[in-house]
Amino acid sequence: LGISQPAVSQHVKQLEATLGITLFKRSANRIVALQEAWELLRNVELALTSLDRLEASIFAMKNDEKQRIAIAAPSVFGFVTLPKVVAIIHAKTASNVRSISGSYEQIGEHILAGRAELGISRLPLDPSLFEWAPLGSARNVCIFHPDHRFSKQACIEAHDLAGETIVDIDPQFAAHQMNFNALRFAGVEPDIL
């Protein structure tokens, strides 16, 4: 920032006094951002992104440029789904479309921060934060080596997983807990690696 650490501390204290809220927890030689600081940062980023988008929009109008649309999606959608979506948007609006990739959680952040107008994600989504419409559906699959005993089965059910070590993907999502609850309902305690 080109200013000294004490000057930064003074600016932060002035900001907290002006806002009337504490942004950081201070102890000894440590300073830790509180939830209020992260919320303020998110809102400031959103405001700055909106100003950047407004400036770009005005520039595009002045120069008769096409509108730009950003779509946020996990990279797995980049192979089939996203190219189809981009082609439809481009054909119907003649807009320039760019894609932003990330995790499902990052997709939501891109939308909330205004870095993308559209996102491809998965449920559950907080209806107070997002407007959404179904795009498609997917099923969970069990992946295993071709020589595994499951290769002879057409469908793997919860009781088949008894005693199997499971590697779970994206444990932070609700689908993770739903899968394990389904196993427990079937009387199988999941063995998670």
Rank of each mutant, 00 (worst) to 15 (best):
L82D: 00
F79R: 12
I120Q: 01
A116L: 08
A87S: 15
E117N: 10
T93P: 07
I89R: 03
A87L: 06
S121Q: 05
V80K: 11
P134N: 11
A116I: 09
V86Q: 08
R122Y: 07
E131D: 15
L123V: 08
I89M: 06
I88P: 02
S101L: 00
V80F: 13
L112V: 03
R115Y: 07
S128Q: 15
A94I: 03
G102E: 05
S103E: 10
E131C: 10
A87V: 03
F130A: 14
G119V: 03
E117D: 15
A87C: 01
A113Q: 13
G114P: 05
A116R: 01
F130Q: 15
S103P: 08
K92C: 06
W132M: 12
E117S: 09
K92G: 01
L82G: 05
R115H: 11
E117C: 06
T93F: 08
H90T: 09
T81K: 02
P124I: 07
E117P: 06
L118N: 00
G102H: 05
N96Y: 12
G119H: 01
H90M: 02
H90R: 12
S95E: 09
S95F: 06
L112F: 00
I100Y: 04
A87R: 12
I88Y: 13
I120V: 13
R115Q: 08
V80A: 11
V86W: 04
L123T: 15
G102I: 09
S95L: 05
A94Q: 12
S99Q: 12
K92I: 03
E131S: 13
N96R: 11
K92F: 08
E131L: 10
G78E: 10
S101V: 12
Y104V: 07
A113W: 00
E131H: 13
S99M: 11
H90D: 01
E105T: 15
E117R: 09
D126K: 09
T81H: 03
Y104S: 11
P127E: 15
A87F: 03
G114K: 05
E109H: 10
L82S: 00
G108P: 00
Q106D: 13
A94K: 10
S99A: 14
S121A: 13
I100A: 00
P124G: 06
L82N: 02
S121D: 08
E109V: 07
I107A: 04
G119L: 02
E105V: 15
A113P: 02
E105H: 10
S121R: 02
R115E: 02
G78P: 04
R115M: 02
L123C: 06
P83A: 08
G108E: 13
R98Y: 15
S128H: 15
G114D: 07
L118C: 03
S103Q: 06
